[in-house]
Nucleic acid binder design. Sequence first.
DNA 1: CCAAATTAGTTGCAAATGATACTAATTTCC
DNA 2: GGAAATTAGTATCATTTGCAACTAATTTGG
Lengths: 166, 166
Amino acid sequence: MSGRVAPAPGRAVMPGLELARYLPYRLSVASNKASGLIARAYQARFGLTIWEWRVVAVLGSGHAMTAQAICEATAMDKVTVSRALRALNERSLVRRRTSPQDKRASLVSLTPDGQAVYEEIAPLALEWERSLLEGFSDEEKAVLGELLERLSVRADILAQGEDELP
Amino acid sequence: MSGRVAPAPGRAVMPGLELARYLPYRLSVASNKASGLIARAYQARFGLTIWEWRVVAVLGSGHAMTAQAICEATAMDKVTVSRALRALNERSLVRRRTSPQDKRASLVSLTPDGQAVYEEIAPLALEWERSLLEGFSDEEKAVLGELLERLSVRADILAQGEDELP
DNA sequence: CCAAATTAGTTGCAAATGATACTAATTTCC
DNA sequence: GGAAATTAGTATCATTTGCAACTAATTTGG
């Protein structure tokens, strides 16, 4: 058996709303599966949450950054970044120096330990990505990336206008 | 200014791990933006959480289902389904009858009020989806759906093997 | 046929998350 | 030059979530 489920007898057919075909739902399912997979791996092998990992990933470039810059680079909330930095700092994976230009802000960078963690995880992260995309052609990967990007842009645009509605 | 960020001077270049180009990250960002947008709308207009909405959506077919069947149809955890059903039941949007075949299980269906909610939201949900995908050709929509599906399948396969590793 | 194992669904508790408020430093602009 | 507004980051509190334990019903298999 396969295909669409028939509507209950005597009930009007509602055109087209079937959860399994609803894009925001499918996107959420795919994202949760992919993230969950990788998050479990970070957690099990390195004791890092997905947010801590994201912070490490952007600091892996070697540039010191403010928490604010990290927020932008990781699409994380400032509270989430603050908590991730506290945890990373307690484990001595990052260090924070008060910015000389702005004494409210700190410049955060990886410690040697943090850099070592980054260098150990980064190749694994790429390997997980590769496994996830096994069977995708280069073109398919590019198209997927592009479509996700356009979707994000659309969502941003719609979010702009949403509180102006009736 | 645009383009890739240069590595810090004197630092080895780690090939290819740039968060903004990392697929699981991009997927998560796109999904969160899309879901957040729609979740806020459900919440603001109908007082439904995204999980309550998902349950309503699958029950909208008119078929009575067990909580277990709802779990499968919505990709939700049984605890989450249980809580969503309790909330919907308190608002008299669903009703539960003990299954005659299995007295542990209930058969859940929408009440007339629940059906009315479904019929009011379903077209809006489709409209939000349409807005989100504005500018996407039919083929692009199809490709996106197909790629997400393949990604989910891959993630399931990888999740199978993950606790067999060293 | 009955003890052991499994399944449906709920509950309780601990951890994660999000919104808000707060402190301290900086910028704006009159 | 300084009061008012803004920004960086943290802390607090309420809600949400996830896990594990639990009850009750059913299935298995000896």
